[in-house]
């Protein structure tokens, strides 16, 4: 039995969670993403790096169909999560986004209490049958975001009153509260100081055990610290994708090498 489980786990680790095939994104006349093909593994942290405007955030926003909220955006190609095409007609983007959580560049807690911020997702999706269950979800999510000890005595205080790092962890707790399978993070530390960044990075390590995490970052050291796989984007194309160690020590493409050695970007 035990052996079987080991095998399963290995396979599980390599299991493809998100698969993109021939993805193109257009903003009006701008061709923002050009033919991206990528397999993102489950229970792993995948980092997207690349210079500003290279399309990494745009691609990230395709994975939970956030680009649908931008009227001029147009997406071609297929993105599959667990083998299911998320751009299929039958898929409800609202349901999808509960399954694919997102954390944004700037901490954006709602102007509500800390409790209500975390309870927001479970409430709109009806995940809790009663107040006790909701309390539990809130506590679990805040614990997972490593924020519980700091805020447990002031759950009714406004979320906007927390420090920047706490706010970002609150946003992570909020995203975790709907029990997503994938967590997308769009430069989650770019507005944080080094200490808060460290806390969030540690958190990403822990989150990896439960979720498939995709993180967009400008910091190459961050990518090397937190991720197992790294994809390098350049001018809308995905240039290189592989083990993080490989990408940073032995890039195959000249553009990747230029970027990580600091010659461009």
């Amino acid at each position: 039995m035990n052996d079987m489980r080991f095998v399963e786990r290995t396979v599980g680790n390599e299991e493809v969670k998100i698969a993109a095939r021939g993805v193109h994104v257009y903003y009006g006349d701008t061709h923002a993403i050009k033919d991206v093909n990528i397999d993102i593994a489950d229970k792993m942290v995948t980092a997207f790096i690349g210079p500003s405007g290279c399309g990494k955030s745009t691609f990230l926003r395709c994975i939970n169909r956030m680009n649908d909220t931008i009227p001029i955006a147009r997406i071609e190609g297929d993105i599959m999560i667990d083998g299911e095409d998320i751009y299929d007609r039958r898929v409800d983007p609202v349901q999808l986004r509960a399954k694919v959580g997102m954390v944004f560049q700037k901490p954006n807690p709602f102007p509500k209490s800390i409790y209500d911020n975390v309870a927001y997702g479970p409430k709109i999706h009806g995940l809790a049958r009663n107040k006790a269950e909701l309390d539990e979800i809130v506590e679990t999510s805040l614990r997972r975001a490593a924020l519980w000890d700091e805020v447990k005595d002031r759950l009714q205080a406004p979320g906007t009153g927390l420090s920047g790092g706490q706010q970002q962890r609150l946003c992570i707790a909020r995203a975790v509260a709907t029990s997503p399978e994938v967590l997308l993070m769009d430069e989650p530390c770019s507005a944080l100081d080094p200490i808060a960044t460290d806390q969030v990075e540690n958190l990403i390590h822990e989150l990896r055990e439960r979720y498939s995490v995709v993180i967009v970052t400008h910091s190459m050291s961050q990518a090397s610290r937190v991720s197992q796989r790294t994809a390098y984007f350049h001018l809308g194309e995905m240039v290189e994708y592989g083990e993080t160690g490989d990408i940073f020590t032995n890039p195959r493409d000249q553009r990747t090498e230029n970027y990580i050695t600091g010659r461009i970007g």
């Binding site: 909220t69 509960a98 399954k99 954006n108 927001y120 995203a175």
Partner: peptide, 11 residues
């Protein structure tokens, strides 16, 4: 950012 946050949670 408020709208993004809410849509991102599936609202």
């Amino acid at each position: 950012a408020m709208r993004d946050g809410s849509y991102g949670l599936g609202a």
